[in-house]
Write a protein that binds this DNA or RNA. Structure first.
Length: 580
DNA sequence: CGGACAAGCTGA
DNA sequence: CAGCTTGTCCGG
């Protein structure tokens, strides 16, 4: 591969046997079909076809083409391919799908589906062919670029595009559209412009799925906001776009740039090099951080410190973040102190307008203490709705509540004070201050990635208020003012968190110091029983009906999972689970 | 997945 | 034993 490669010639002799992977859920096996001479030129590795299988017509992908004499079976007895539907993933992506099926213990069709055009593509538009300017040496192709929240990533993207056809990923589809608009040369958006991307000669931009985009002359890959969890698919196979493109770049021997204000430990572990801004530039790109130590405050202020109240009264635009919806998520009797729980299932109840509602089973009941009959309950955990009312009183101006369920077209431009779950940070354009009413909830969340996620949240907030030069401010209410996350934000230096976090992960054997898979569902125990006598993987659990499989690295974990047979029944295999 | 086919169950 | 359900197997 390279600039001096002779132009590719069409196959002289049509290959006559196609190995087809049917797009049938629950089937992860290829079948051989004869390629009728009439279809010859349309049939390539990746082509989407329809074939007869077990008496019905199903769609599928050609994953391999075999010369008839070399094929083990007699080509004349094979059923022919019934129809060519159109273009499918290019051969490099077809190969990548086999790797991903191993890496995330999933079916290949899940990946090929993501890599396929949303509507049938019969022909590709003509393309302006560009050559790649340079080819990276394969061993140092992953580079992490730390760019502060207020920094501009467009120059990095332009550099990548200058190398030739680049693939650029953003966490959200909206972000991809925004980036596409900022580029002066046209780019193809994935999956919408599938055919244009497959034709080559342009940069491809998209969200997670674009990791699977066709880029025939790939020259570089850029992952923006690499730390964002939107890059991981929630449904099994739980593939991660960052890890897919790292492997893709390695195979194509092109550079892979992972860009983030707070790079994940996984990115840092994969990187051959980390490019950091100067201390001055990084400081300028983060806002001023006010830490309110809530241990030093008089009791009775609730969620609202004096500094917070000053901020909401200041007249500037203030966004308050509280990651709890509803009014009150945990209540206790004002008389006897008993926790308010559901009469049906014992779970904690929350307040709604008509009374109390169980958060687990939805049963409702009037506001009465089940233990002593008192009718006055006190709030132990305030939700966003209640915070809105209280803030409105304190601020003496209207306060708008924003959660993930707030309508997309709601006009927030005029709102002076907003309160919401972290969704508010995605909805609000700009603000003078973002205040975290209860940061400790994020810092101490019972997930091993909690600290990383908390810093990512602060980075997102930092983008809303801008860098310190523009007067941007974050206000953090916490009882853990020396927590490494607070420390990292305060010093505008995410490596302060990464360093201590890596030590903790190594001690606890969590990724990236180990590779994990979570196995759940009714068939889980039968599945994991096959791992019992292995020494290269460790089996933990079950906890909450979920088993954990741990190995020192993915090679061992995925090899072990690949040897298992799937018992009948529902089974969920999550490699690299997020929520543990 | 979904069709084919076998084995098991029911009712007259 | 017809008629139906349930389970298992397998696809080129």
């Amino acid at each position: 591969m390279g600039a001096d490669e002779p132009p590719r010639r069409r196959e002289v002799r049509p290959r006559s046997v196609a190995r087809v992977l049917p797009d049938v859920a629950g089937l992860d096996k290829t079948f051989d079909y004869a390629v009728p001479a009439s279809l010859g030129p349309d049939v390539r590795v990746g082509t989407i076809v329809r074939v007869e299988l077990h008496g019905r017509r199903v769609g599928g992908w050609i994953v391999e083409l075999v010369d008839a004499p070399a094929a083990a079976v007699d080509a004349t007895r094979l059923k022919p391919i019934a129809k060519v539907t159109g273009w499918g993933p290019l051969p490099d992506v077809v190969d990548l799908s086999a790797w991903a099926a191993w890496r995330w213990a999933g079916r290949r069709s899940a990946f090929l589906g993501t890599a396929s055009p949303p509507v049938a593509v019969r022909g590709l538009p003509s393309a302006a062919v560009r050559e790649r300017s340079t080819v990276a040496e394969s061993s140092r192709n992953v580079v992490v670029h730390r760019v502060p929240p207020a920094g501009d990533v467009v120059p990095l993207v332009r550099d990548a595009m200058a190398r030739g056809d680049a693939l650029v990923l953003t966490p959200s589809v909206a972000g991809a559209a925004r980036l596409a608009r900022r580029m002066e040369t046209p780019v193809a958006r994935y999956p919408h412009d599938w055919a244009r991307a497959a034709a080559g000669g342009c940069t491809v931009v998209g969200a997670r799925a674009a990791a699977w985009a066709p880029v025939p002359n790939l020259a570089a890959i850029v992952v923006l906001d690499e730390h964002d969890e939107a890059y991981q698919e929630e449904r099994a196979p739980t593939w991660h776009a960052r890890d897919v493109v790292i492997e893709r770049a390695r195979r194509a021997r092109v550079p892979c740039l992972l860009v983030s204000p707070c790079p994940s430990l996984d990115a840092l572990a994969a990187a051959a090099d980390v490019v950091t801004p100067s201390r001055a530039d990084e400081r300028a790109g983060w806002p001023v951080v006010d830490v309110v130590d809530r241990r030093r405050e008089p009791p009775g202020l609730g969620l609202y410190s004096t500094r917070l109240v000053d901020a909401v009264r200041s007249g500037g635009r203030v966004v308050c973040v509280l990651n709890r919806t509803g009014r009150a998520r945990l209540l206790a009797c004002a008389a006897c102190g008993e926790l308010a729980r559901c009469e049906v299932c014992d779970a904690a109840v929350e307040t709604i307008e008509e009374g109390l509602r169980c958060r687990r089973c939805g049963a409702t009941r009037p506001v009465v203490c089940a233990a002593c009959g008192a009718t006055r309950l006190k709030t132990l955990r305030t939700g966003v709705t209640k915070a809105r009312d209280e803030l409105a009183r304190l601020a003496n101006r209207p306060v708008v509540e924003v959660t993930a369920t707030t309508l997309d077209d709601a006009d927030l431009t005029g709102a002076g004070v907003l309160v919401g779950t972290e969704a508010v940070l995605h909805r609000v354009g700009r603000a003078d201050v973002v205040a975290f009413l209860e940061l400790d909830q994020e810092l101490l969340a019972p997930r091993y990635r909690a600290a990383e996620q908390a810093l990512a949240l602060l980075a997102r907030a930092a983008r809303v208020v801008g860098g310190r030069a523009g007067g941007g401010r974050l206000l953090l209410q916490t009882r853990l003012p020396r927590h490494p996350v607070v420390d990292a934000a305060l010093h505008a230096d995410p490596s302060r968190l990464a360093t201590v976090e890596l030590v903790a992960r190594t001690a606890l054997r969590f990724p990236p110091a180990a590779a994990l898979a979570a196995i759940s569902g009714p068939a889980a125990s039968e599945y994991v029983d096959q791992l019992r006598d292995r020494v290269d993987v460790e089996l933990l659990g079950p906890a909450d009906g979920r088993w954990l499989v741990r190995a020192s690295e993915h090679q061992l974990l995925c090899d072990a999972l690949a040897t298992l047979t799937r018992p009948p029944g529902r089974l969920r295999v999550e490699v690299d689970p997020l929520r543990i």
